[in-house]
Nucleic acid binder design. Structure first.
Length: 330
DNA sequence: CGATGTCAAGGAATC
DNA sequence: GATTCCTTGACATCG
């Protein structure tokens, strides 16, 4: 089992995750791939073998008004192949998670078409890197549009219409306000799409009141034989949020404190909840993407705490010395 | 150099 | 029908 983290590196300020320049400055996938090369080295140096790449590696690659950006993946065939070989050599599991604007269950056919184009670009990047089936593109169901059931059925229809390279990579995740674990299980039954169980989202939205162990097992079971399942884990921020607000009339600034929503991510994983959830499914292996605000810093902290406090869980992530590993197994 | 405004994109709540 | 939040960082411009 592996622990991973998404996109941004917080331990270092010299490792950007994508070429984020504005379109006027001519950003390019080639620049992002140079950054990624350095990120892979960093991941190897901290012994991390799962990572979510930025969904903006290829800037404007499907922007309808900017055809000059549309050839980037072809222009980087060689670089993509080389990076993919590096990833395989270091046993690195990669993924992509397109932004909230990529929606395939919209009633707006044009928006669906633009979204499918973007998904095709994301799948093409993973294909050009020649990554195995564990390298997935993660998507949410989309909008409710006033009728959850109809919108769920529209997702099912849209999924069956997807180009084969997209369908081969796509996996579906429960979200925290619209489509629950129950919803994605229903969609799986009608499409076969593998499911990502997100613990924090499940805690925020669970209309069917599915127990954690049951939801986790059910989602894990949707992955095809031979492909290691993956889940998302995070816990909510509990500290008050300070925001500096300026009065529009007077210009006077004041700090306002607000309680965080359950959907806000904490800086670090709550370790008690982490080990509790891991122990719900002792019989299956799966990878865990940690979606904390402090990304790699949170992963490193959890990893250093686990052997001392929860050697049984640490053992499953290969975090014990061989002698301790044996003791924990025995 | 520091402060501030801006960025491709949708959905949903609120007024 | 229009506005704002969601949530976030970093680019770009200005003083």
């Amino acid at each position: 089992m592996q622990l991973g983290f998404p996109v941004k590196i917080t331990q270092r300020d010299d490792l950007p995750s994508n070429d984020a320049r504005r379109h006027q400055s001519g950003p390019h996938l080639r620049v992002s791939l140079g950054y990624l090369r350095a990120i892979f080295d960093y991941l190897a140096s901290i012994d991390v073998r799962m990572y979510r790449m930025s969904s903006d590696l290829a800037p404007y690659v499907t922007h309808p008004d900017m055809p000059q950006f549309h050839r980037q993946i072809d222009e980087c065939r060689a670089e993509l192949a080389a990076l993919g070989a590096d990833a395989r050599a270091q046993g690195l599991r990669l993924s992509l998670h397109p932004s909230q604007y990529i929606i395939i269950n919209s009633p707006d056919a044009d928006l669906v078409q633009r979204s499918v184009r973007e998904l095709a670009a994301q799948a093409a990047i993973l294909d050009a890197m020649a990554l195995g089936p564990e390298a997935v593109v993660v998507l949410h169901v989309g909008g409710v549009y006033g009728d959850r059931s109809a919108s769920r059925e529209r997702f099912i229809h849209a999924y069956t219409q997807l180009p084969e390279p997209v369908r081969r990579r796509l996996v579906l995740e429960n979200d925290d306000t619209r489509f629950s674990v129950g919803d994605i299980l229903h969609i799986h039954q009608h499409t076969g799409v593998p499911l990502i169980y997100d613990y924090q989202h499940h805690m925020c939205l669970d209309r069917e009141r599915i127990p954690v162990a049951e939801a986790l097992r059910a989602c894990i079971a949707t992955w095809p034989h031979g492909v290691q399942p993956k889940i998302h884990f995070s816990t909510p921020r509990t500290e008050m949020k300070a925001t500096r607000r300026k009065n529009k009339q007077t210009g006077a600034a004041a700090t306002v404190y607000q309680p965080p929503s359950w959907t806000n991510h904490a800086d670090y994983v709550n370790p008690f909840e982490f080990i509790n959830v891991m122990r719900q499914v002792p019989e299956r292996e799966f990878d865990v993407m940690l979606e904390c605000k402090l990304k790699d810093t949170a992963l490193l902290r959890l990893r250093s705490d686990l052997p001392r406090y929860a050697p049984d869980v640490a053992a499953r992530f290969g975090l014990l010395e061989p002698a301790e590993q044996e003791r924990s197994a025995g």
